[in-house]
Every structure is written in structure tokens, then in C-alpha cells.
Amino acid sequence: MTAHPLVVDFLIPVLKIAAVILYPLVMVIVMIWMERRVVALIQGRLGPNRVGFEGILQPAADAFKLFFKEDIIPRQADRFLFNLSPVLVLVSSLLAFCFIPLGESFRIKGYTLTLWVAESPVGLLLVLGLSSIGVFGIIFGGWASNSKYPLMGALRSVVQILSYEIPLGMTVLTVIFFSRSIDLVAIVNHQKDARIWFGFLLPVSFVVFWISGIAETNRAPFDLPEAESELVAGYHTEYSGMKFAFFYIAEYAHMVLVSSLVVILFFGGWLPPFPNVAALAFLHRIPGFLWYLAKIMFFLYLYVWIRATLPRYRFDALIKLAWKWLIPLSALNLVAVAVLRYVL
């Protein structure tokens, strides 16, 4: 028995697209709440705990407030680019979620329901490309504001992204050597067949990818483009109201995206842990989506944890870290993994 074609061809894709837009937004709310609470707890405070259960609705209340705030465009600003950049930032990070597999596909009444909107044979490239487009939004926003602090933030962002894309790309290559595919679903399936997650096989790649990922998302300790103690708010200084909210949401969505990528590339996506231990076979009963969720929650927590721990890098130290440590290290790692893969 097959489902009605209207359901298969129209309803399910539309619902999936809606879910793919809503899922990052829900994660953003959870993430903002978690960040504020965890940082507060580490600093000996309590954090927002009044709105909703333990303050979980605080981000929603903040978004509601931002929704009604005045939308200010500076007189000297380039209006077109100024309006375009928040959209560009948000759309690029939301769009990349289309290619993120959230769980294994399962069959309902002869129809295979996949937990991803699009499976592309070049999914990894698309995700990396789309997440890099977000940088254009930052650059445009900083440039179009026609103000010194946003411009400084945008310039820093360009240099930072240029530096950290290189180790990011090279570490991704090592994963591709093992999976022999840049299809995200195939990468996860390869980890299932290999019975080992690439993170344990390629620890150097994972650490370099994670450090570069933090730098890509402009998070502490690499949050120089929006260093509030130096640049007011960096590239979004001149933004207010919903446009600011767009930048804010996009930043957190980007964090969710990078966490998802780390989980998929290095920690087996939706796969349960310990596939070899027979005693833990019951772990396979838990749906893959929940495993995926638990894993990305860990990495989102790690983001916050690192932010609460490490002070911001000075700019030359940041560039030095990229060019004198991460790039040589990832190049060596690339060669080593290539040789290893060839020998094996």
C-alpha cells in the first residue's frame, strides 16, 4: 500500500521544510536560554529563571520585545545593503539545515520518510558554502552601516573567516578520505559500517575542526568581530529591533549548524554509542533523532562552557593561532591521514 501522491509529493515536503525552519529556531531559543543560564551559574549567579519554567521563555520574551522596537536606519547608511545583510545572514544559516540529516530514515506504510529535506551528493560542500555566505551578510552589514565600529567588526570578520576556513576545509578533507563521499548521509552511514566514529579515528581533525568552527561562528574566545568591550557590538552596532534579532538568531543558528556538522562528521550523527558492546544493544531502540539531539546539545553546552572559561584572544594572537598552529597542524594531519589511508 502506498500513500496518496498528494501527501507524498506535496504535504510531506512542505511539512519537512516547515520543520527545518522551525527546528533551528527552537534550538536557538533553547541555546540562548542555556547560554545565559550556564554562564550565570558558572559566574555564581542564577540567570533568567522567572519567565516560564526556569526562564525557558526568556528568549521568546526578548524576541517579542525586539519585535516591537523601533527600526532605525542610520541616515548615512546604504539602505539596500543594510536591509539585505540580516536576511542574508539568517537565510544562509537556515538554508544549510536542509542538508543536515537529523536521523535515520524509517518506513511508514511503504513510504520511506527521510529526516532531511534534501540529500545531496555534495551536501558537505553545500553546507560549508552556505555557512560561508553568512559572512557576506556580516561584511555588508558592517560596510553599509557607514559607521566605524561596524566597519572594524566586519574587517575583523573577513580576516578571521579567511584564516579559519583553511584549517576547516583541510580537516573536512581527512573525513572525506575515510568516507570517500561528501554526502552527509553517506558519511554517517560509513561510520555505522566502520563501527567507529571518525572523531576517535581522527582526534586531531576533530579538535582543529572544532576550534575553527568556534572561530567561524564568531564565538568566544574568537568573538573579535563583535567584541563588546572594544567595538560596542561589532558589525551589528547600528542595527536595532527585528534586524538585530535576525543577526542574533542567525549567530545561534550557525552555532547549532556547526554543532550538527561536528556531530555528523566526527561523532556519528544519529548513531547510538558503543555499537560493538552487546550489553548496550538496547541503546539502539532509542530513536536516532534523540541521539543526534543529545550529541548536539553536548556540543552547544561546550560552546557555552568555553565561552565562560576563556578570555578573548588578542587579534594578532588569533591570526597567529590560525597560521602558525592550526594550518600547519591540519596540513600535516592531512598528509598523515592520506598516507595512512593509502597504506591501509
Partner: peptide
Amino acid sequence: GLLITLRYYFSPK
């Protein structure tokens, strides 16, 4: 450093 902040996470507020 991460361990130190983790200890503070569980410290009294």
C-alpha cells in the same frame, strides 16, 4: 580551565 569553570558551575550561588 574548563575543569575550573565546571567546578564553579556546581558551586553555591
